[in-house]
Write a protein that binds this DNA or RNA. Structure first.
Lengths: 249, 249
DNA sequence: CAGTGGTCTAGACCACGCC
DNA sequence: GCGTGGTCTAGACCACTGG
């Protein structure tokens, strides 16, 4: 039931051709977006999905493999296919690229020191694709690695998508788990822009460094499963003893 | 001829199992390493390779797809499969992540201001996996974007793998094309470590900025097709008007 | 039109995890 | 032993490119 075949039975129309597995993938991602398949779910076997969708197992497999490559699913031979959870150890470092110079990877602890609801500024309206006069939450926090405060960051969220965020106390360290569990929003992808900047007086106070110390400023935009921008985050980081790591291939 | 079947005909031995397509991929990568398939080559069709290797077309396809995903090959429907060339526009930005704040991507021009052959220091011996007392080439150059000098960088290469490098004059802007054409070395992958640092007096002179200006320091190790470290590069970059861009997924 | 990679199918068998 | 995903095969057909 619910067959996919948008192509079959039509006269030849090479224009706008779209592979079946791609259509299947879109349908399955929709189930993640609308919450039909929540994080952690053990999904039906390939054979069952193939039967349900009226396509071959190979086609379902190609869609599932692509979603697994995007870290939306986790496949485990002998067990099954599962919806990724933001608490998974693997996921935690997917978006956190700061590493100790000696190679140890640790997630930093966080302390929120300010939070408020306010009108979005022009850049924020633009980046988050919000309507004029939209309001946002602003969360300011510091983060510690190895007992030392090395990051000061500001998170900006559209108030419309994060109702009653002020009732969440405390704001957890892993905010992506919060977005997922409380608001059903999964951060699937992010873009970061890195610059070297000087510590302001405020930075210097929180990071316990002289004003003017070089900091790495990381501006991140996080995108949801549907491709819309969900979170804007600006982090300013000390990088003595730590570095930002990138793999190019 | 030249069949692959390392598995077939053996008694069951689940330990050390290795998929056929993976063995095929290894054999094909070897042809890139040893120069049998040089950059730009139009390689045999999937059917021909399948026949040659004694496997099915689907197995060859999986190996070729994996190599294309690693940017070692370029596949074009209707035309064929080609060995990637470092001159390709796509390849040029694979390893260059600095972008104008307005989104324009340009490759910088380069000016070499110093070059010498010397003994490698301890870190270099370690990173490049060189024997004790190995010698290296050191190339110092500046790079310009939009007519402004924004990068000062040092490239360190094992002298043993880059014979007579001093006879190359001038050192071209795209050194990866030089490595490929003159030495048959393809940079297939790189790891970068980013830090925020202060401009030294020397940096300040070349970059025309005050000493102490925050710079982004990028330490890159480039790896060849065989997985060995080929190049060490340290770039120090101004980031006003430019940023380093990263996509996380 | 011929040749190539891309899609889709159907089925067999294998490695793995769990009971 | 059973169910899962993973591999491998064989073959049909489609979309794209170039001559």
């Amino acid at each position: 039931m619910n067959k996919v075949r948008a192509q079959s039975g039509n006269a030849a129309r090479p224009l706008g051709f779209r592979p079946l597995y791609s259509q299947v993938q879109e349908m399955l991602v929709e189930r993640l977006i609308d919450g039909t398949w929540p994080p952690g779910l053990h999904l039906p076997s390939e054979q069952q999905l193939a039967a349900e969708l009226g396509v071959s197992q190979g086609t379902v497999r190609k869609a599932l493999d692509a979603m697994a490559a995007d870290n939306l699913l986790v496949r485990r031979q002998g067990r099954g296919t599962f919806v990724s959870e933001p608490e998974d150890g693997r996921m935690l470092f997917q978006f956190f690229k700061l590493v100790s110079d000696d190679g140890r990877r640790n997630l930093p602890d966080s302390s929120v020191f300010a939070m408020k609801r306010r009108a979005a500024d022009r850049d924020e309206l633009d980046i988050l694709a919000l309507p004029a006069k939209a309001r946002v939450w602003q969360i300011d926090r510091t983060r510690e690695l190895d007992g030392r405060t090395v990051i000061i960051e500001r998170i900006v969220l559209p108030a419309a998508r994060f109702a009653n965020l002020n009732q969440v106390d405390p704001i957890p360290n892993n905010v992506y788990a919060l977005y997922s569990q409380r608001y059903g929003l999964t951060i699937a992808r992010a873009e970061e822009k890195l610059k070297a900047v000087s510590a302001t007086a405020a930075d210097a106070k929180y990071l316990d460094c002289p004003p003017g110390t070089p900091l790495m400023e990381i501006s991140r935009v996080g995108f949801g499963l549907d491709g819309t921008a969900v979170e804007l985050r600006i982090s300013r980081c000390l990088t003595d003893g730590f570095h930002y790591t990138v793999s190019l291939k």
